[in-house]
């Protein structure tokens, strides 16, 4: 198992978008798309597969670029210390 997704798997995520990291005690808020993206990444999905799930689950138009957005989200997770 990829150690990064193990790190994500330990996060407690509630339906309100509240995230608790038991390792560091940090707390976070994620938006609706972020909740789904986080769940996908926890399950070990690739950013591309995660972006596809977002497109399926949310109403988007042709101007959106979920792959770029998920890549940015992964960078945000890194900024937050949730990915090495």
């Amino acid at each position: 198992m990829d150690p990064e997704s193990t790190r994500l798997r330990d996060l407690a995520l509630s339906d309100t978008g509240f995230v608790f990291d038991p390792l560091t005690g940090h707390t976070f808020t994620v938006n609706l798309t972020g909740q789904l993206a986080l769940r996908c990444l926890k399950d070990g999905l690739s950013p591309e597969a995660t972006a596809r799930r977002l497109t399926e689950e949310f109403e988007s138009d042709k101007n959106t670029d979920p792959v770029r957005d998920v890549q940015d989200f992964v960078l945000q997770l890194r900024d937050c210390g949730l990915l090495e």
Binding site: A12, S14, D15, T16, G17, F18, F20, T27, T29
Partner: peptide, 17 residues
Amino acid sequence: FEQLAATGVLRSEQRAF
């Protein structure tokens, strides 16, 4: 904390976390 941080409102009847 969860309710206030995530939703901005505290409803004592909902303690989801």
